[in-house]
Write a protein that binds this DNA or RNA. Structure first.
Lengths: 123, 123
DNA sequence: CAGGATCCACTACGATACTG
DNA sequence: CAGTATCGTAGTGGATCCTG
């Protein structure tokens, strides 16, 4: 298996944690859902949908939630009611990444203008 | 333009900084290149290529570097020599995100086992 | 209400070949 | 050395319709 060497911390490129974990965040909605759930703790499907603003398709919200659940970032609880109620709650693992993502969000907000400017200049 | 409300911080979903900025990091190689360049400061094209371990195609490395340059994360300097020499240097903007990405990397390393375990249990 | 099932478009990415 | 150009593919995400 190929290795790369970033200074003194060798990374396995195939099994690289950064790649493996952050690739999940690399999709279109995961980070946003985690941000929302990190702030609200528990939400229902349609509540998350509303928070995002229905720019997201039902399918993708479902897929995103399933993936985050599989990774252990949130817990899905179904109540056997009619109509059905499903609640999504952030887990301890989710809570532990949240501050990092939150900082990234703040960084993004702060530096967005500089990036926009750079992009325009580059054209 | 649609708005969403994450607690007290309203986000413009279309022009959302998180989405706009972090979508760039969502690709396959940007984070890795930023990590490498953040630690080495200045590298040549082929040096970056070697660090990644040639799992990346020349084309994608070029595209990734161009995008990071356009966003202002790194500076590209071409020397009119034969054979040509091109150096990529991390900018102040790049340096300012680096710690965040570095923390994400450390988090990923630390929590990868828990995530793997969760994924297996979910199947 | 919270989804599952389909179909389809786009594009990110890789492989290969060529060049100033 | 550091790319560009071209082609081909797989996967991501959207739109729509259907259901316990």
């Amino acid at each position: 298996m190929s290795k790369i060497n970033i200074l003194d911390s060798p990374l396995d490129i195939k099994n690289c944690p950064v790649r493996n974990v952050l690739d999940r965040f690399g999709d279109k909605w995961s980070l946003l859902v985690l941000l929302i759930l990190g702030k609200k703790e528990t939400l229902r499907f349609n509540e998350i949908n509303k928070e995002i603003g229905s720019d997201i398709s039902q399918k993708m919200l479902t897929v995103t939630l399933r993936t985050l659940e599989a990774d252990g970032f949130l817990k899905r609880t179904m109540y056997a009611e009619i109509p059905p109620r499903v609640e999504y709650t952030i887990t301890d693992l989710g809570k532990s990444v949240f501050p990092l993502i939150d900082k990234l969000e703040k960084w993004a907000k702060l530096n967005m203008p500089a990036i926009e400017k750079s992009r325009k200049k580059f054209k």
